[in-house]
């Protein structure tokens, strides 16, 4: 177990370094002088010179990278060229908004998908199985920004149950904050449930074919217990891996949803900063989102042996 843990931690550390190199290279690929990109148009020649010195811009790229990593590790991601705010608190603040939506949506999706997938697998090839799979395939084919727009139209404009524009923080007014995230959460949860139902069903079908399930049934264990005690825990492993990947993908693609629902999340911040050529913020959003994705995958892999102890022994 300890070896598995160490190996997995080491791999994450390598991936994180690769993320840092990629972000560094990407930002350097943007046409223009790195110092002026980071300080914006209003910077004076003296300010530019200070930054060039500090980042060693007259030195070879690998040395420049080390200077840059040093700043990043100290939490210094620069200041927004648009608003003058420090980047780190800004992106953390916006990230919270996205994280709440993504996490709540994913939890709901799992709560819908696991029972639905298990049920479909248990009733494999029946009409109800066919209906569950068809519904799941339809759901996962709907673009989030379209489903979001239609939800806004129905529940926001036609029925008037929920607000259409804006956002309120949870620390300001908890109940109103909930009313603003209901629709985006529902949109994501429905789509992700579509993906997860199919995965949960496929894993459960594989388990149901195994001998120990037949053995448990032959012993007279009730169907309910077979599903809950033998199938569910074993089918959850592969689904867990998918949940990790989906969480990352949701964060990476959250900008479209935040645009539909005018939410001040990290995705919207990234797109706005791209438009405004606010490169320090673009860089911060990239670093944060990719690092979180790496960490999610790490957590998933560390949780995996809980469901499938064979993994840790390899």
């Amino acid at each position: 177990m300890a070896a598995y843990l160490l190996k997995r931690l080491g791999m994450s550390a390598i991936t994180l370094s690769l993320v840092a190199v990629t972000v560094f290279v990407l930002i350097r690929l943007v046409p223009g002088d790195a110092a002026s990109l980071m300080l914006g148009e209003s910077a004076t020649e003296a300010q530019l010179e200070i930054l060039r010195q500090r980042w060693g811009l007259d030195q070879p790229l690998p040395i420049q990278f080390l200077y840059w990593v040093g700043d990043v590790l100290r939490g210094d991601l620069g200041t927004s060229t648009r608003t003058g705010q420090a980047v780190l608190p800004l992106i953390l603040d916006r990230f919270q908004v996205s994280a709440v939506i993504v996490l709540v949506a994913m939890s709901l999706a799992v709560l819908i998908a696991i029972p639905a997938g298990l049920f479909a697998a248990w009733r494999q090839n029946s009409l109800s199985d066919f209906l569950v799979v068809t519904l799941a395939t339809l759901l996962l084919s709907v673009p989030s920004f379209w489903l979001g727009l239609l939800m806004l139209l129905l529940f926001g404009l036609k029925l008037g149950w929920l607000p259409v524009l804006g956002y309120v923080g949870f620390n300001e007014d908890f109940l109103r904050a909930i009313s603003f995230i209901v629709l985006p959460v529902a949109t994501l949860a429905l789509i992700e449930a579509g993906v997860l139902i199919r995965m949960a069903r496929a894993s459960a079908i594989e388990i149901l074919r195994l001998e120990y399930v037949a053995h448990a049934r032959a012993k007279g264990v009730s169907e309910w217990k077979v599903l809950a005690k033998h199938v569910l825990p074993n089918a959850f492993g592969p689904t867990l891996t998918l949940i990790g990947l989906l969480l990352g993908n949701l964060l990476g693609g959250i900008a479209v949803l935040e645009t539909v629902f005018t939410l001040p999340g990290i995705g919207r911040l990234l797109v706005d900063s791209i438009y405004a050529r606010d490169y320090p913020v673009v860089q911060g959003c990239l670093l944060l989102t990719a690092s979180v994705f790496v960490m999610i995958n790490l957590v998933v892999d560390l949780l995996y042996p809980v469901f499938d102890p064979r993994v840790a022994r390899v």
Binding site: L18, T22, L26, G253, V282, T289, A290, F293
Partner: peptide
């Protein structure tokens, strides 16, 4: 494989978003 891993560490359309800027 290191390059592939680096690219795969950027989830969703995040990488495409930034590449379009470049």
């Amino acid at each position: 494989m290191a390059v592939t891993d680096a690219v795969l560490a950027f989830p969703g359309i995040l990488l495409a978003l930034v590449l379009i800027v470049i």
